[in-house]
Simulated scan of single mutants.
Amino acid sequence: MTVDLLGRTPVLQRHHGVPAHVQIERWLLAQIAAGEIVTGDRLPGERVLAAALRVSRMTLRQALDELARRGVLVRLPGRRGGAFVAEPKLDCDLTGVAGFTEQMRRADRRAGARVLSARTVAAEPPVATALGLPAGDPVHELVRVRDADGTALALECSWLPAAQLPGLLERPLTGSLYDLLGRGYGLAPHTAVEYLEPVTADAADAAALGLPVGTALMQVERTAHSATGVAVEFARDRYRADKVRLMIRTEVTG
């Protein structure tokens, strides 16, 4: 549905230091925050909206392009295309040592998992180093697509020390891995070091998540240790940047 914005376009301030396209971005964000335009609404066409705002189409496109880059709008080509209000991104809370299932619980979503592969392999040098093992030692390699309420959000690749976790791959692997490590082996992750890095989807990522190659993803590389200091997981999780915002809570300490 094309939303009627033409009757409430703002009067842009021309000479007070804030570019017109930034004022348009702020106005549209305020309209979304107030619920005046909602997910799935289509904005009026560029020519009509630019005329109502008394700006050039180039200026309007600057605003729309920036909001599309930030995931606020989705721009589609063709006669039935246009600029649409995107679904709000899901906040994944990485505070503490929270697996995907716990992150979704915090967001009031139902977590799911689809196992792509589960096998025991020889640890390659980066995996061995992270887990404190000699290169070539056996590790369990688990690759899963994680979803929230049926929407694929992340591709998880985890490596775990096989000697510490006998029979792990014979257990159910579609739930919380961290709960399984705790209940089954007494090795629940207690501390973790995580690195966040923007990446783009390669062919394997794209196939697993149903995305075009080159789509923006956010990678979280993590090494997790148990309370006794055992390295229990080295992981590279790749989240869809169009669906997820990663959040970390902090507090001031003395």
Rank of each mutant, 00 (worst) to 15 (best):
E66G: 14
E66C: 14
E66N: 06
E66S: 14
L67K: 07
R69Q: 08
R69C: 08
R70P: 02
R70V: 01
R70G: 02
R70M: 01
G71E: 00
G71K: 00
V72F: 08
L73E: 04
V74I: 11
V74D: 04
R75D: 08
R75C: 12
L76M: 12
L76F: 03
L76P: 03
L76E: 12
L76V: 11
L76S: 05
P77A: 07
G78M: 12
G78N: 15
G78S: 08
G81E: 14
G81R: 02
G81Y: 06
G82T: 03
A83R: 09
A83P: 07
F84Y: 04
F84K: 03
V85R: 07
V85W: 05
A86W: 02
A86D: 00
E87V: 05
E87Y: 00
P88M: 08
K89G: 13
K89H: 11
D91S: 03
D91P: 03
D91Q: 11
D91R: 02
D91N: 07
C92I: 00
C92G: 05
D93C: 06
T95S: 14
G96F: 03
G96N: 04
G96D: 02
V97Y: 06
V97A: 00
G99N: 14
G99Y: 01
G99P: 07
G99V: 04
G99C: 04
G99L: 01
F100Q: 02
T101L: 05
T101M: 13
E102T: 04
E102R: 06
E102Q: 05
E102N: 02
E102L: 09
E102K: 06
Q103N: 10
Q103T: 10
R106S: 04
A107S: 09
A107R: 03
D108F: 08
D108N: 12
D108T: 01
D108A: 13
R109Y: 10
A111L: 15
G112R: 11
G112W: 03
A113I: 11
R114P: 12
R114S: 15
R114E: 15
V115C: 03
V115W: 03
L116D: 01
L116H: 08
L116S: 06
L116F: 08
S117F: 10
A118E: 01
A118S: 11
A118K: 08
A118G: 09
A118T: 01
R119F: 09
T120C: 15
T120S: 12
A122D: 13
A123W: 04
A123F: 14
E124W: 09
E124R: 15
E124D: 14
E124M: 08
P125E: 05
P125L: 13
P126Q: 07
P126K: 06
P126E: 13
V127W: 12
V127D: 08
A128T: 04
T129I: 08
L131F: 03
G132D: 02
L133D: 07
P134R: 05
A135W: 03
G136L: 06
G136W: 11
G136V: 07
